[in-house]
Nucleic acid binder design. Structure first.
Lengths: 256, 256
DNA sequence: ATATAGATTGACGTAACGTCAAGGTCAACA
DNA sequence: TGTTGACCTTGACGTTACGTCAATCTATAT
């Protein structure tokens, strides 16, 4: 006959805690098949199966409330939900990427011996925060919406665009910073130089439809062969373009 | 003399809410310089500076408790904290990547799939994914070094499935083909050129979490403004990059 | 004098449980 | 039969970083 399992058995079976199962009962996500005379929760095969689905979607990062809809609503629009969820995940990753980039830069700044005072460190931030504070005290703060170039109709889009822009800028700066550090010993296979190549790739992928090692290596050659590119990097310090090329060649395995 | 600002001024100045400032006071993260006779919080220059540091680290994703240590402890080990934090962020991203991959696979399964019951669907997922994941993570990742072949790492980085990857490549080829055709008369507002722009958008949406006209137009400008990108498209025929840019500007309504 | 803006301290809500706490239930063993 | 230990139950508080009222007091402008 039908299987009947208690809460702990189900917990061990599925790898979640009994607390979780009680919680799912509370919020109506997964009710036991029945309760016995002592109010013990008894689960059957159907509940085991349902729990599998629930845990599957939980792993995808869906909220329990959404999962509840999924498994109860008869005509749930999975495609739309998945598409939206995908978008949300991509955004999260975008934000994470910005954080990671900034953390990297901060680490580099600390290691690079560019001893910045706390004050200097936060200069940039500060400028954003208090522009001409003396004048602005007491009067209303007006926000800068630019000259209508930004489509304000969708705040979410706006934020994303800004984030993307920020990340591109950050990546480009990171490449330059790393290269400057790598110039210390000039070794293209140093860890720093290789990180520069990797960051350069990440930056590149914002613009290039398909990344390929060949194209990346080809571009690297151009950095040295074509004066227009060379000057772009060498303007701060001669030899940077060449170092970047060599680093990329090693990175892409095209160095020979 | 020293500046004295109330809670709301500081809030507007720094872009956080007054609630946040009160909360920071509560948890001892940022105490006002003093309170006046009516218990109003009064902040000075030192607090403004401190808040900047706090917000800087908050943007990096640090928890407030850690930030509190940072700004209070005299001998805080920033390097270690940053390294650990970096580690944690990378793990988060890893988890996100797995989620994104799985969501993509699920979408694929639903699109390509016959009508399945929820149960069947789930079974299918489970099996497919286990197999797939074993392939993906169970064994070492082998990269394609063959000449002319596209590096598989791009696919990996974008967490795409085979299906999606093929679609992206098809779109990219289509953009190029359409552009070549459009070069016949070189009109950016021709139907063909506009179709190229539209295809370019569809392609783009595989890479960007959010499409926005502004970002699209911005990217188009880059294609021409920065020689490093121009070469990607112009390599087959000079003028293609510019045509694409103009087409996109018209497409996005940013042409003037 | 009064309207309005701005300040204060509570206090509840959030997501998905972890972690006790106090107290019933069941099978087994002395 | 009594007891022990494993297992069950229902609370209820803690977590993170605030958002959002609510009730009440203070400051400023007309």
């Amino acid at each position: 006959m039908a299987i009947e399992i208690t809460i702990q058995k189900l917990a061990k079976l599925s790898g979640v805690s009994t607390r979780t199962l009680r919680y799912y009962d509370d919020i109506g996500l997964l009710k036991p098949a029945r309760v016995n005379s002592s109010s013990y929760r008894i689960y059957g095969q159907a509940e085991v199966d349902l729990l599998q689905q629930i845990l599957f979607y939980r792993e995808l990062g869906f909220k329990l409330e959404v999962i509840k809809e999924m498994v109860t609503a008869e005509d749930f629009d999975y495609k739309r939900a998945l598409a939206e969820h995908h978008e949300a995940l991509m955004m999260k990753r975008q934000q994470l990427d910005v954080m990671i980039t900034t953390v990297n830069k901060t680490i580099d700044a600390m290691n690079g011996g560019v001893q910045m005072s706390n004050k200097e460190k936060f200069e940039g931030f500060k400028n954003n925060m208090i522009a001409d504070n003396e004048q602005q005290y007491g009067q209303e703060i007006r926000l800068n919406y630019g000259d209508g170039t930004v489509d304000a109709s969708n705040k979410k889009v706006q934020q994303m665009t800004e984030l993307q822009y920020e990340e591109v800028q950050a990546l480009e700066q990171e490449v330059k910073d790393l290269l400057k550090l790598a110039m210390a010993d000039g070794q293209a296979d140093s860890e720093i130089a290789q990180r520069a190549a990797d960051t350069h790739k990440r930056w590149l992928m914002y613009y290039w439809p398909q990344y390929s090692k060949e194209a990346h290596a080809g571009l690297a050659e151009m950095y040295v062969a074509d004066e227009r590119f060379t000057s772009y990097y060498d303007i701060e310090q001669p030899g940077i373009a060449k170092l970047l090329r060599d680093a990329i060649l090693i990175y892409t395995g095209k160095s020979n």
